[in-house]
Design a protein around this nucleic acid. Structure first.
Lengths: 336, 336
DNA sequence: ACGTTTTTTGGTATCGTTACCATGGGGCGG
DNA sequence: CCGCCCCATGGTAACGATACCAAAAAACGT
């Protein structure tokens, strides 16, 4: 009992005893058993993070930020990838449930998870959704300014004189993507132009569909790709077809990626603050966890929207500004 | 008790009772409490994975593979980044210890962790080291053919007629790097040439040191960079200095990265099988976990060495072969 | 039908931590 | 110097799953 008191903030223990206990703890290398602690009714000092894909730099950057932010408050992160699969997402949630996580961060993949998430919420486990949200779920939300970002990109292309801009998306069922689509559509319509989409759900179809469209009559003079998967797919196809960027075809991509500046044609992109996204979401979640259960829970800040930024390089047709030329790339593994 | 039996394989339960129990389980949405299970003495069906950096594509690909392999056998993965920091690594190990993980996979960062790892091993928790190993630790090891990979790279440069090749490394304290260095050194010496190194421990110093050397008398005609951090740092510096690759300077990098083929100059690299590394390590660990404790544990396969591959693109001075030109890039997020 | 074996089922204690309560010792005022 | 109160400390029970054992039920042979 006394040991327990010492371990979790020695308030009612004499300084002498506390010191003695601490010495023994050190000598024996004692580490409190998390399982017993959880069993006793407390939730684990662990937050769960479910994301679609660990290999995607956008998500892995988020994960990185989540882990750092959580660690700073003494929490571990239980990281699970759903692999964009509904069943895997379900089992990830079940596992986190069984492990009594204190809260859940999720970049959702499937609508099917809503009921599971709501069950968890009902048991007092807070949920924060990142990057994408499911309408109808009462949960924390951290998003980026998708619509505004798309607007910036399209406006930039319009300023370059482009009149037919094709919009390309992979994974178009998510609201993050539909927001970007809407930003594109509105801006085009406002300019009196006709929006045109290429939407696919299978990665491998992106480049074929785009090339098909380019060979058809009245090909577009510019492309706006809505995520980096699409951007990279398209770039590769264009390189193979020896279509010159930006002379023959201008491109702006949504979601910046490291190395975008070092490519054969440095790519102009809408940058999303991935790290900040993870950080904000974690803080939101931890706030929620710490808050005592109560009806005033509603009053908590439940939605965060982060700004996007247009990073102008060359694929849009701009001449490189000196600033851009010297852009700092810190190296893939060198964020520390 | 009967419920417990039904949940973990109903062997001694009558079919009728088992069915009845299962029905109730389903109706109540019962999920066995992992904490209690662990507390009772069983280890969690969870493996820990400690890596230096989640944002590095090499490691995140490993993590991806580890998670998939572990999930296939019903294990969760507790992922923690040490951020190349000794203290963080120590606390990561402590946390995993407290959470009774069934086994630990680690890309070690600090020698200080040896004692902690040995404590865990003494308690019957198997440890597998990936990519780097600490000599003197009796643990599973999964490595790649660093020396042979370096040899291939250097030989290739020699075949192109290069006689002064500079070797550049970041993070040179690890045996994976020293093996590459040794492969470079041996091959150079065998060819009757003098090896020359630029070694730094701080990322930001890489490009400066290399540029310094290039401006000095008798500059090298080729670079061999020992990891992708170094490769990308150097490429950026060369671009700024308008040094032409491969005319003015040839480059081969160790550790391939997605987009290497799409860069201004497609980079020739030694590819490491990152996914296979994670997979092999996980299988090794799970084999060990499943094995009943006993003296014949020694007989287990304890070391795996995976082959590397030279991916020839253009930065070495080769003309692009047709095959290379059509190299498939499946997209950053499209590994599923 | 009865005793015996075999199968199925439930009771009890335990893991390590902590909430709650009880005890003991020390300090203080009367 | 005695009694009271308060603070420090330790005892006990409980969280939920399960190993072990006991009991009950079923199956079997004679």
């Amino acid at each position: 009992m006394t040991v327990s008191r010492v371990v979790n903030g020695a308030d009612l223990v004499s300084a002498r005893t506390a010191a003695r206990v601490r010495a023994v703890i050190k000598r024996l290398g004692y580490e409190p058993n998390e399982a017993a602690r959880i069993l006793k009714g407390h939730s684990a000092r662990t937050v769960g993070f479910i994301l679609p894909d660990l290999a995607d730099p956008f998500f892995s950057t988020c994960a990185h930020a989540v882990q750092q932010a959580a660690a700073k408050h003494g929490y571990m992160t239980l990281l699970l990838a759903s692999e964009r699969d509904s069943d895997r997402e379900a089992s990830a949630l079940a596992m986190m449930n069984a492990r009594n996580v204190a809260g859940i961060l999720i970049v959702p993949t499937s609508q099917n998870s809503i009921s599971q998430l709501q069950q968890l919420q009902a048991r007092g486990i807070p949920v924060v959704m990142l990057d994408r949200i499911f309408p109808g779920m009462q949960a924390g939300e951290v998003m980026v300014e998708n619509e505004k970002g798309a607007q910036m990109a399209v406006r930039h292309l319009l300023e370059h004189g482009h009149r037919s801009i094709l919009c390309v998306a992979y994974d178009s069922q998510f609201n993050s993507i539909t927001q970007r689509m809407s930003g594109y559509e509105k801006t085009m319509t406002q300019a009196g132009l006709k929006p045109e989409f290429v939407l696919v759900d299978d990665v491998s179809a992106v480049s074929n569909k785009v090339l098909q469209r380019l060979r058809a009559p009245k090909p577009p003079s510019a492309l706006f790709t809505l995520n980096n998967v699409a951007t990279i797919q398209v770039l590769q196809a264009l390189q193979q077809e020896r279509i010159d960027v930006p002379q023959d075809l201008a491109i702006i991509g949504f979601d910046d990626f490291e190395l975008a500046a070092l490519l054969a044609v440095p790519i102009t992109t809408v940058r999303q603050p991935a790290a900040q996204l993870g950080q904000s979401a974690t803080h939101l979640l931890l706030d929620w966890i710490r808050r005592p259960r109560g009806p005033e829970t509603r009053s908590l800040q439940a939605q965060v929207i982060l700004p996007t930024e247009l990073i102008i390089r060359r694929s849009c047709g701009c001449q490189p500004a000196p600033r851009v030329e010297q852009e700092q790339i810190t190296g893939i593994a060198a964020r520390d």
